[in-house]
Structure formats: C-alpha cells, structure tokens
Design a protein around this nucleic acid. Structure first.
Lengths: 361, 361
DNA sequence: TGAATGAATGACTACGTAGTCATAGGGTGC
DNA sequence: GCACCCTATGACTACGTAGTCATTCATTCA
C-alpha cells in the first residue's frame, strides 16, 4: 500500500538532503520538497482542497480538514509562502529602511517588528550606514514586492521618491518631517516637544540657552531648534545653535568641550537627541561641569537609558510604540483615495534630575 | 505606433493605481504590473532574453542589453524577486530569530543586517518577547523558504530542533551555547571570557567575588559562572552566585539592593551582562557604594555604553561583527557533509575604571 | 415533489521568472 | 571548403499556490 518513499521527513540529521534507496528504486540526491500536491495524493483529496484547508479552512469540511492535516503532518508539509505570494500578490511582509546607527532607530525597529507580528506580518530589514546607499536599498525593496515600506531615512531625494511612486507600494515616512506632505508620514510633534522643554527651562529661570543639534541639515534638527527658539523667544530668552556633527554619543562628548570653551556657560543646554545628550552630559562631567548644578540639560526621544539612574535625563518622551502603531495602521489600511496623511503624535516631558535644581528660585 | 498605454509609470501621485482612458479604450482600475514579458514586447526581444539581461547579463550581448535596459526604464520594470525565488529556489533572504529585549541583541541584529547586505542578502526579522512564541515564529520562518536562519534564542527545545531538521534550511545558533553540538553554532568564548576577567580581579587582589547572573537556567549564565568560579578557585578565591532574574537594567538595579544587604560586601562583583551591570552599578551608586572604591565590578558583552564615560566599565568585549561574520559564513557556505560546526570566538578584556584602583597593592 | 439553495469539492489556470534545450549565425582551424 | 565551436537568442516549461468556474449532492421551501 505504501509504495512511495518519504524523504527528509523523519529524523534525518540536520539540513542534509538525505537520499534513500528502497526496493531497488533509486531516488535523486536532492530531497524532494513536499508540496500541496503531495499532500493531496496522500490524503486522497485534490490539491485545491488541500490549499483551501490551509488558507481558507472554513471552506473545507471538518472531517476533510482533519484528514488533510494528518497527511500534511505525516509528510512534513509546510505551505510555501513564496508561491502563495506570487499567486495572491501579497507577501505579508513589510520592509523597514532604517539607519544602522543610533539607539533610537533600533528601538523603533523592534517596535515595528512587534506590531507587525501581532498582525501576522513579517519585517524585512534594510539598514544603511551611508545615506548614499538608500537609493540602492530602495531598489532592492521594490523587487520583493512587499506589502508596504517604512522609510526612516531623512536623505531621500525627490527623484527617489518619484521612483517609489512608480510602484504600487504603500509607503510611510517615519520621523522624517521633510517628507510630510509628499508621502504619508508619522512623526512626533518635534516643535511642540522642544517648545514644552523650553517652557520647562524658562520656568526654572533659564534666560540663555544653547541648543546642541546633531546635523543642521536634517529637518528634525531644524524643526526641533525652531520649536525651542520660538518658545524661548516668546519669554525673552535667547537660544544659540551648536552643531555636534552627528547624533551619536561621541559627537555629544566632543560638543561638550566646545560648550566649555564658551566665554560664559549658558543657563541650559537643550540637546536634539538623547544619545547625543548622554555624550554631552558625560563630556561636561569630565570637564567638571555638572548638569543640574552648573547648567540645566535636556534631551529628546525618551530612550530607556534616559531613565537610568546614571543619567536621569529630562527629555521629551516619544511613545515609540504609539508612533509605530500609527505607521502600521497607515501602511496596512492604505487607501489610494485618501489624502496624504500626516500624523503628528505629541510627546510628553519627562523631568529628570538634569533640570531639577535643589534650590529653585 | 504607440498603441498601448503605460500606467502608473509617469508622475502619478503616490501609490494610487491610476486608470486612464485612451482613445475609447477603457483600462482596468488596477494598474497592471510591468513584467519581463512587457519589456520583451517593448524591446523586441524574447522574455527569456530579458530575464537573462537582468539575472545573467554576461550571457547577453552589450547592444541587446542596452536596448532592453532602455525598454525596462521606459516601462518602469522592476524584476520580481518573489517569482525569481519560486523558480530558482533561492530567496536571498536570511531570517533572524532574536529576543525583542536587550541591547546586545539589537546590536547583533544590526551587524547581521550589515553583513548580509554586503553579500546581497536581506534580513527577515522575527523577534519574540515570550520564548513560548519561538515555536510559532519558527513555523513562520519555514514558510518563507529563506536561505538560512539565525537562531538567537536560548529556549528552543529538542522537539523544535527536530522540526527544524525536517526542513532543508541551514541554521546557525548564535550565542546559544546549549545548542552547540546539536546545530552549528557560533558563540563568544564565555568560559574563557569570565576566566580572563577573574584573573584580572585576582591580580587586583580580590579574594571574595559575587557573580550576578541574569537567569540561572540559561546556558550562557551557567558557563560564564563556571568559567569565573573555576578560575577564582584556582587562585583560592571564592565565588558566590546571585540571580538577578533577567538580563535587564532594572533587574541589575534591584540586584544591587540584595548585594548591599549582605553581611559583608564582596571584593568584586562580576555581572553576567553589560546591561545588567549598568543596573547593578547605578543601583550600588544610589546606595552609596562606589564601583572602584568599595568594590570592583565587571560586566560582559562589551556594549558601546560600556565605553561611555558615565560607566567606563571593565568588561569582556565580544566582537559582534566578527561573530556575525562567522554566522553568515556558516550559513551561506552550508555543506551537508560538513560536521556540525561549533565556532568559539575569543573576546578581549576591556579594563575600565570600575576595576581601576587609585592605590593598587 | 420539483425547483431552488447552499456546501463541499475538483479541474484548470495564472502568477513572473529562470533554466534547459534547440537553433541560427559567425568565426576558426586545417 | 568543410567540420567544428562558440555566442546569442528563442521556445518552452516548471516552480507551488490560490482563485475561478463547474459539478455534485444534500437540504429546504413552496
């Protein structure tokens, strides 16, 4: 009765494709992959019914389903998502294009992954170190016909966006204010965020503030600075801008030296990102300048480390999970007729000891 | 002459599929996807030649290639990686199954992504918070017929490994010592690492050490502890084990309280992971116990933050890039006949101020 | 009881590509 | 001038699935 030989389905060691000889029948060295056709033959139903048993179980009678599942188990059948995608024009994969560096992006990435998993989607990761790579990366993404793309790079040119528009792929820009209005985007309210931090500083009596930015050409930096400067201006306080060069810890550490070289220390330093702020804080400490005592200091992002006792940084907390949820919602519910969405999520100020004066006037 | 209408290729807004009516000809609302067949028609060559022009350019004459590329550009053709994968049985995708929490994993992830990108592979991310999810995740992975899988979970049971072996998918375990010998694995030399740190502590005069582990049931913890305890024993020093509960900062912070409650402080605290160590360090500081002065403290992993001035932690630096490179090499060169590889990469001790006594006897 | 309805299933085909085989020339060696 | 080889190309088909349509059979309603 059992006149076929099942290959590579029993306890064959590791991933080697085991060939077996049975009854004089010589099989190829390649282990044949088990398909829905094999399961159909084993179970006595048609391939169509087997496919339905897996993709639309409600269309198959319980008894049949049971039989098919047993046959599938016996053969070790696993549906082929590639073939499914080709046929159904859906991959259930979302691509994320994110910078390789930076704590913030790493946390965002994990959040995307989690939210997508909840909706039975997978995350295809494309990270880039040099923003010149972005174009190449985007070409790659398009080939995979993913269901959507999360774009977290500030360095996409108009030309690149045009190329993206040629495809039929939903795209959402993540924390990339420059893209707002061009492609659907989700960001934290950067301007309101730094404004809120500025208000807090003014309340602490600050009149002279230096804003330490990562890279001045990023829209993020520009908007955050403007938000701070305007709010400070409204209260008659000054706000200078100092560029650190990047958003990394090291850049912040070095920027601290520049701050210390100023003729007069500012009342407060507002830093454009938390990671950068950690660097500034440590740099200043090394130079004997303490955060709550000699000047106040704020960050931006609300990274977990900001809450660590070693830093306890006043910062603007972005709810990354909430941002990510909006991104995924936009992607997966993408309606062609909808106008270009531009979702701005407010952040909340976290007051740490870097702005908490012992004696407060 | 131009009796067809190209759809969605010009400057159509965003990703909407634009329908156009031309000369009484009504086209469907769905933008038709451009395939190699369309490019063939446009260029005058066959589909086979078009496919070759993209996948094996050397088999096509330069003139033909040029013509085809122009036609492809005109139509906005992008090769379909899904169809290619179905036909070629290669996806050029590697899956990574990693814990959602933990700085260390995030860095590893980024390193995997970078190394894979260099080899024109993509990274499909599967993260899990609860290790109970791992089985479900692994089922998902198998459906995508990825070219390989990086497994960075310590909680894969024998049964799950057996299921994996049914497939023909190369797998490499990453920093999961328990898997060594069962599936190919790559890890840092945990035992030698803690032994080296222990040697360093002994040289600093430590006789009484407490090892703070994350979770005692993980093989990582066990091996690291054993490495430390044996080396300390060889020098007549004692080594107690304290379980923090997880490898997170918070766990470390809480574990510090337990340390402080001991009748007598140890000479040194060895912590099983850097993130955990940051927590211990901050927790002790809060309790008035300073790292180089009241006791020495070491971590493990060599996270970037360990070098930050705020911590300056003595730790065992794992070269994540080097580990990742070994992982990718193993995956992509997977030879069925090779015996199960078990690559152990040495780490290096980084001496920070947490073990640097001002006055050294 | 006959027609209508619905559930369950099978036959067939399209999805878009790449590899196999066959074929047509153009060049080379003798 | 013939046999040979190599390059460039085309026709054809398989990859594994899911959706469309047709068919069968049981059930329901008038």
């Amino acid at each position: 009765m059992n006149d076929y030989v099942v290959i590579g389905c029993s306890s064959s060691p590791r991933w080697c494709a085991i060939s077996r000889k049975a009854g004089g029948l010589t099989l190829s060295d390649e282990a044949r992959r088990v398909t829905s056709v094999d399961v159909a033959a084993e179970s006595g139903f048609s391939q169509a019914t087997v496919a339905r048993a897996f993709s639309s179980p409600h269309l198959v009678s319980p008894a049949t389903r049971e039989t098919i599942e047993q046959a599938a188990d016996k053969l070790g059948y696993i549906p082929n998502a590639i073939a499914r995608s080709l046929k159904s024009q859906r991959t259930d994969i979302v691509a994320a294009v994110v910078p390789a560096q930076g704590e913030y992006w790493q946390h965002a990435l994990i959040s995307f992954g989690r939210q997508l998993a909840e909706r039975d989607k997978q995350l295809l990761l494309f990270s880039f170190s040099d923003s010149a790579d972005v174009a190449r990366v985007i070409d790659s993404v398009q080939q995979y016909r993913v269901d959507g793309m999360i774009l977290a790079s500030a360095n996409v040119t108009q030309v690149q966006l045009a190329r993206l528009n040629r495809g039929a792929m939903p795209i959402v820009a993540f924390n990339q204010p420059a893209a707002s209005g061009i492609i659907p985007s989700v960001s934290v309210d950067n301007a309101a965020g730094t404004a809120a931090l500025a208000t807090h500083l003014v309340e602490q009596g600050c009149r002279k503030v230096t804003f330490v930015g990562g890279r001045s050409e990023t829209s993020t930096d520009q908007i955050r600075y403007r938000g701070a400067a305007q709010e400070l201006g409204r209260h008659g306080a000054a706000c200078a801008y100092l560029e650190a060069g990047s958003f990394s810890y090291d850049s912040g550490y070095k920027a601290a030296a520049h701050l210390a070289e100023l003729d007069e220390l500012p009342d407060a330093v507002m830093v454009s990102g938390d990671e950068l702020a950690f660097g500034v804080l440590d740099g200043l400490r090394t130079l004997g300048i303490s955060a709550p005592d000699d000047l106040l200091l704020t960050g931006f992002d609300g990274l977990p480390q900001a809450s660590w006792a070693g830093y306890d940084l006043t910062t603007l907390v972005q709810s990354i999970d909430s941002l990510a949820e909006h991104v995924i919602d936009l992607l997966l519910s993408a309606q062609p007729e909808t106008e270009i969405a531009d979702i701005v999520v407010p952040g909340t100020v976290r007051v740490g000891k870097t702005t908490r004066r012992l004696s407060n006037g």
